[in-house]
Design a protein around this nucleic acid. Structure first.
Lengths: 223, 223
DNA sequence: GGTTTCACTTGACCTGAATCAAGCGCCAAC
DNA sequence: GTTGGCGCTTGATTCAGGTCAAGTGAAACC
């Protein structure tokens, strides 16, 4: 793993060579089998991560074992960088690989040092945390002000993005998507069946095609 | 308003005199009648705020007018500091005074400048954003993994804190508390009635006394 | 190649909380 | 003092989505 590769990740994009070298010195590569945990909720946090390949889910557990997926991490994304700035210094979620994955693990203390001495890096981080906070506020909004159908259709429209031709390949099994949207797999299945019945989407395994996005957007207003 | 007063607020506690002077130069005092809006969702954001006196609710609106209170701001607390680090630069919530209030409004651009040149300040901010993010994750957890009764009792236990003798004075009308917890006023009323019936709390207007906190904690496990 | 496993689907039923609808105090305005 | 409005409570009813149960199909394993 050399400097150039690291710089391709957003988090490190603006860092100097000397800084990158230092981060590399403390880096560990963590290979994970499907199903393996990277860390668990309330584990002490010495490191933050970049996902090189694979898929990882971040989730919370209720006392009786129900889980709520907070985020699905895809290749190239970083996670758990915020933990180093909290006094508790414990991961607030569980991280489990959904398939075979490779994670780069960096030391908090080195990164903290560079954030302290490089204000551009600090501002970059502040920006990314703010964005994430906003996303969480929007999620609370959706959970409380909108129903299951809305959340699913909204999710599908977001996944498809503006430009593409409406083809989505789910980055995680449907049950994980369901948990991400705070609905039960059965309910997700039913809503999909309904959308299929109304000719709005086509479903084949983990591949979904949005047939009429305008109609789906109208569907949102109603639901 | 002089330097010393400002330094008493957390956000400014670590700032130099020169920095504080600069912030003061751009400060405006905003008096608000009960019910007045300080800003609305998606307004462009040039300023962030400290609440000097009064109470303000931050909330999101659904298309058909339902509201979800995200946070109730009490005297001495700051809010909307994160917005300046997002590219959109628009408030993601509405801010409305629940009673007559006085707000100090500071210029984002001045503060941004100081954050850029003072890493201690940047770290302080990173810490506070991280904490707020964690709180949001916990709220999502509660919304999805726990029922209305749990959320209310949990809220009451938190409001009371560890040390005090179990007396709570609600900082906002019950309907606002209900929205904060994502339940309807009727439901809140019913749960309170039940807790009262079981001899766990006493209610008199906006004053609540927790009679048996151990029992309430046990109640959480069951609910 | 047969069987186990596991993700997903579909149907029948149940339930927590929302909705709808009165009614009750309490403060404010006149 | 009376009246109107508003926050809150309480009861009856409804409904979205959860639970429970059974079935299907495809990949995985011996």
């Amino acid at each position: 793993m050399q400097k150039e590769a690291l710089k391709r990740y957003d988090l490190f994009a603006s860092m100097e060579d000397a800084q990158i070298d230092d981060m590399l010195a403390g880096m560990r590569v963590v290979p994970l089998d499907a199903g393996a945990f990277l860390f668990r909720q309330s584990d002490p946090a010495q490191r933050f991560f970049v996902l090189e390949t694979g898929v990882i889910k971040l989730f919370r557990l209720s006392p009786d074992g129900d889980e709520k997926v907070i985020e699905v991490i895809k290749a190239g994304e970083s996670f758990a960088e915020a933990v180093m700035f909290m006094e508790a210094n414990r991961y607030p979620v569980n991280a489990q690989a959904l398939e075979e994955s490779r994670v780069l693990a960096f030391e908090n203390r080195r990164f903290y040092h560079w954030v302290k001495t490089d204000s551009a890096l600090a501002l970059r981080l502040l920006g990314s945390l703010s964005r994430r906070m906003h996303a969480l506020v929007k999620e609370i909004d959706e959970l409380t002000l909108h129903n299951a159908g809305y959340r699913l259709v909204n999710y599908l429209l977001n996944e498809a993005g503006e430009d593409s031709d409406g083809d989505i390949t789910l980055s995680a099994p449907k049950q994980v998507v369901a948990s991400r949207l705070a609905i039960k797999p059965e309910t997700l299945s039913r809503i999909m069946a309904r959308l299929r019945g109304e000719g709005l989407i086509e479903v084949e395994g983990n591949h979904i095609r949005l047939i009429d996005r305008e109609a789906l957007r109208r569907w949102l207003e109603a639901a």
